[in-house]
Design a protein around this nucleic acid. Structure first.
Lengths: 210, 210
DNA sequence: ACAGTCGGTTAGCAAGCGCTAACCAGACGC
DNA sequence: GCGTCTGGTTAGCGCTTGCTAACCGACTGT
């Protein structure tokens, strides 16, 4: 994999054909779903038409596969990098949240595709993506459990998924400008993580907050 | 529309054929996407095969259309009912959150379909669903703005969408049992809404928390 | 008893799909 | 200046899809 790119924040002056194609396909898959987009649609979105795509990808499935593994790799390595390089340990969770928020705001189409089209992957591709995602969730779980006292592992896992849902909601609402949105999402995610799961575990299963 | 049903919580002893079909189709659409499911798949999921569905629906698009308008109507009327019948005004937001949490936990397939397949609707159907959703968001915005002091309307709208994302994440994580999950999601949503957007508005646009 | 409706069946059509085949223009190495 | 890649083109194949047509058995009202 010569150039990972695919991410809108790279702002390459000269993106590879492969990269343009993946970007256009991501946009289309996000809007219409994998099966709702034809080979010809993707082609004409980058100015070439139809079967020319097969000079760059082996199949339509391969496009989705490369797209999703690429996202998963970027998220995993980026998240791990943020965790590794943070100065004081109290700031790790905030750093992780901010990283995911920035990624989601800068790559809304990719986020949408990863959320919606995991089921359209080829079996081996899905296994690979699932494995990467699991490791990403794992780093979140670890950081949550060291940052928030006394939260069980299943609760941390569920909370991580919930926060992903919160942050990934960004493609569906464009009411604020980018930086306001980033701050809002970061603060909401932190509040949800820090204030909510506390004191939740260790209680009887029949407990109800209502 | 004789029977709204479609919702798993109704636990009809004798669901209509239409209802079984819609439930099966929702499950399939959620898993494979609208275009990834064939008429024959839906048919055999309810024990009949293929074109027999056209005795109950005019087209495949009509199935999705009825499914999504039904969900949107249930959410809107249910939400408005909770808001109308709440005793003390301070509990309104919590009531609304709990209502949405319960719906999402009891109808994961429907939530998934509504999130992913809005773009596959017919134009008039999409207009109708969008209108219903807008009114639902509107009641959320009103309740948020009366419950949380000094939050601007665009911020409240963005926060509502973010909370929907948080709550609707439930189909993607099954690590807790239903009631624990309901409590966790409710508390996270409330924390995100109450603690985060406070003091956010009225600041200069250039403000950044990072 | 019998006509009508209701809810099924199978056969098959027209269109769209992913993909391959065959061809071709231009850039480049030697 | 000629062969070879590279990255396009169009034609078209084989399959699947949504949907219709034609038919049919079981209830039901009169």
């Amino acid at each position: 994999m010569p150039r990972v790119a695919l991410s809108a924040e790279s702002t390459d002056p000269k993106p590879t054909r492969r990269e343009q194609i993946l970007a256009a396909a991501a946009e289309l898959f996000a809007r219409h779903g994998f099966h709702g987009v034809g080979i010809d649609d993707i082609g004409s979105a980058v100015g070439i038409s139809g079967p020319a795509l097969y000079r760059h990808f082996r199949s339509k499935d391969a496009m989705l596969g490369e797209m999703l593994t690429s996202i998963s790799e970027v998220l995993l390595t980026g998240g791990q990098a943020r965790v590794a390089t943070v100065a004081e340990p109290g700031a790790t969770l905030g750093e992780l949240v901010r990283f995911h928020v920035d990624f989601a705001l800068d790559n809304p189409a990719l986020i949408t595709v990863q959320e919606r089209n995991l089921g359209n992957l080829t079996d081996p591709d899905r296994r690979k993506v699932r494995a990467l995602q699991r490791r990403y969730v794992e780093t979140w779980v670890e950081v949550i459990r060291t940052s928030v006292p006394a939260v069980s592992e299943p609760t941390a896992r569920a909370a991580a998924h919930a926060v992903f849902g919160l942050i990934n909601s960004t493609p569906h609402s464009r009411h604020l400008d980018r930086d306001q949105m980033a701050d809002l999402l970061t603060d909401m995610a932190m509040a949800a993580l820090v204030h909510a799961p506390v004191g939740r575990d260790g209680l009887q299963p029949g407990f109800s907050a209502g």
